[in-house]
Simulated assay, not measured.
Amino acid sequence: MNENVIVLLRFKSQPDKGSYAVSELTKLANQVKEEPHFVSIKIHVDPKDSSNILLYEEWEDENYYNTEHMNTAYIKDFQANSVNFLAGPPDITFWKVSDLIK
């Protein structure tokens, strides 16, 4: 069974800044994908409300995510710049696979 951690990040963009927020998140994801323990990121947008953005991330190491990853310069820069397009910080939750059905 896969022991990777799934990280869900729910963002809310400021009004009329959903596309810009997705663009900035995409730029960030392209930097993040070079990190150790990174597996994948999927960016989802609510088709009924483009200000709702969900990142579905998979990592090999939750401790790495919470320490080294969160302390990278580009994460800090993104957080500082996000006040220009996000309504606030994301809601972040961590998940583990309980069962895999194919």
Results as ranks from 00 to 15, higher is better:
Ala80Glu: 15
Thr72Met: 03
Phe78Trp: 11
Ala80Val: 12
Val45Lys: 14
Lys102His: 13
Val7Asn: 00
Pro89Arg: 07
Glu24Ile: 02
Lys76Leu: 03
Glu34Thr: 10
Ala87Gln: 13
Glu3Ser: 14
Lys76Tyr: 02
Lys27Gly: 09
Pro90Arg: 01
Ala29Asp: 01
His44Asn: 11
Asp61Pro: 05
Ala29Met: 06
Pro15Asn: 00
Val39Ala: 00
Pro47Lys: 06
Val83Lys: 11
Phe78Asn: 11
Val7Lys: 03
Gly18Glu: 03
Pro36Cys: 07
Ser50Phe: 12
Lys12Val: 04
Ser98Lys: 10
Ala87Thr: 11
Met1Phe: 00
Val39Trp: 02
Thr72Glu: 04
Ala73Phe: 05
Val22Pro: 08
Leu9Val: 07
Ile92Asn: 01
Asn30Thr: 07
Tyr56Leu: 14
Val39Cys: 00
Val97Asp: 05
Phe38Pro: 06
Lys27Val: 09
His69Leu: 05
Ser51Trp: 07
Asn63Val: 07
Val7Trp: 00
Pro90His: 09
Ser40Lys: 14
Gly88Tyr: 11
Asn4Gly: 02
Ala21Glu: 13
Val5Asn: 00
Met70Val: 07
Glu60Arg: 15
Asn84Asp: 15
Ile101Leu: 10
Trp59Leu: 11
Glu62Thr: 08
Val39Lys: 03
Pro90Ala: 05
Phe38Gly: 01
Ile41Trp: 10
Met70Thr: 08
Leu28Cys: 01
His44Phe: 10
Met70Asn: 13
Asn2Met: 11
Tyr20Ile: 12
Asp16Met: 07
Phe85Trp: 10
Glu3Gly: 12
Glu57Lys: 06
Gly88His: 09
Leu100Ala: 12
Gly88Ile: 12
Arg10Phe: 13
Asn4His: 03
Asp49Val: 00
Ile75Glu: 03
Asn66Pro: 00
His44Ile: 08
Pro89Met: 04
Leu8Met: 07
Asn52Arg: 04
Tyr64Asn: 01
Leu25Phe: 08
Asp77Glu: 15
Ile53Tyr: 01
Glu35Ile: 08
Thr26Arg: 15
Gly18Val: 10
Ile53Arg: 03
Asn2Pro: 15
Val5His: 01
Phe78Arg: 07
Gln31Trp: 04
Asn71His: 12
Leu54Lys: 07
Thr67Val: 01
Asn2Glu: 14
Val83Met: 03
Val7Asp: 00
Ile101Ser: 12
Glu60Ser: 13
Glu62Pro: 02
Lys102Ile: 10
Ala73Arg: 11
Glu57Gln: 13
Lys17Arg: 10
Pro36Leu: 11
Pro89Ile: 02
Leu8His: 06
